[in-house]
Amino acid sequence: MFTGIIESFGTIQKITQDGSNFHFDLESNLASELKIDQSLAHDGVCLTVVETKPDSYRVTAIDETIQKTNLSGWQVGKKVNLERCMAANGRFDGHIVQGHVDQVGKVSAIKDQDGSWVFDLEYDPAIGNVTVEKGSITINGTSLTCFNSRAGAFSVAIIPYTYEHTNFHQLKVGDQVNLEFDIVGKYIQRITKGYTP
């Protein structure tokens, strides 16, 4: 389990395809602290560490992950938001994040607010995910608060610290992002609507 509070960046050094799987080698200042079989969120996608070196490590994404996230668009040199799983004795600073991306969204607008930024995002509402005004959302692994919440769209405000210390400073209009909707909202949605055929 994660909280959506980004710890560091990883920079993609190498991408290797092996059948339908993709291996990603990343350089990070967290590498020396990682262990094989450890869960690590990459732009909100929970991936397992399969190899470690002093300054880098490797994770593997299966086809299911590639199809349901923005990992298919990752390229060498890209900066990725990283968060290790929450320690049992840690503070819960964000919200409950599983590292299981629900769907990909798209940045539809970026507005400079003279010291902060407002990002407007769109997603396909036909999948059944919803946001709640002032509710939680995870974008590329970052825990944020929604506003202007409506079917298939919402906005988030980004303060300078978050802008600089996550990969929001790299995002452009039209970019795809990983979305994980609030777990409580997902359970309520399932209870009230059940399973659709």
Results as ranks from 00 to 15, higher is better:
residue 115 G to S: 10
residue 39 S to R: 04
residue 131 T to W: 00
residue 156 V to F: 01
residue 10 G to T: 05
residue 36 I to W: 00
residue 153 A to E: 15
residue 53 K to L: 03
residue 159 I to D: 04
residue 15 I to Q: 07
residue 75 Q to V: 08
residue 107 V to Q: 03
residue 9 F to M: 08
residue 188 I to S: 09
residue 50 V to A: 01
residue 196 T to E: 12
residue 97 V to P: 11
residue 10 G to A: 13
residue 97 V to A: 11
residue 89 N to S: 14
residue 86 M to N: 06
residue 190 R to T: 09
residue 110 I to Q: 08
residue 109 A to T: 10
residue 183 I to F: 03
residue 65 T to Y: 01
residue 149 S to G: 05
residue 23 H to P: 00
residue 134 K to D: 03
residue 48 T to A: 09
residue 165 H to Y: 12
residue 106 K to I: 13
residue 167 N to Y: 03
residue 155 S to M: 05
residue 19 G to T: 05
residue 93 D to C: 07
residue 78 K to E: 10
residue 7 E to T: 10
residue 155 S to T: 09
residue 177 V to C: 03
residue 84 R to E: 08
residue 177 V to L: 11
residue 77 G to P: 02
residue 80 V to A: 09
residue 145 T to G: 07
residue 36 I to N: 14
residue 3 T to H: 09
residue 159 I to Q: 03
residue 138 T to D: 05
residue 87 A to M: 06
residue 97 V to C: 09
residue 138 T to S: 15
residue 118 V to F: 01
residue 135 G to T: 10
residue 39 S to I: 02
residue 47 L to Y: 01
residue 147 F to E: 11
residue 80 V to Q: 10
residue 57 Y to S: 12
residue 28 S to V: 07
residue 25 D to R: 14
residue 71 L to R: 08
residue 112 D to K: 12
residue 37 D to W: 00
residue 160 P to C: 05
residue 163 Y to K: 15
residue 177 V to M: 04
residue 30 L to Y: 02
residue 68 K to Q: 13
residue 65 T to P: 04
residue 92 F to R: 08
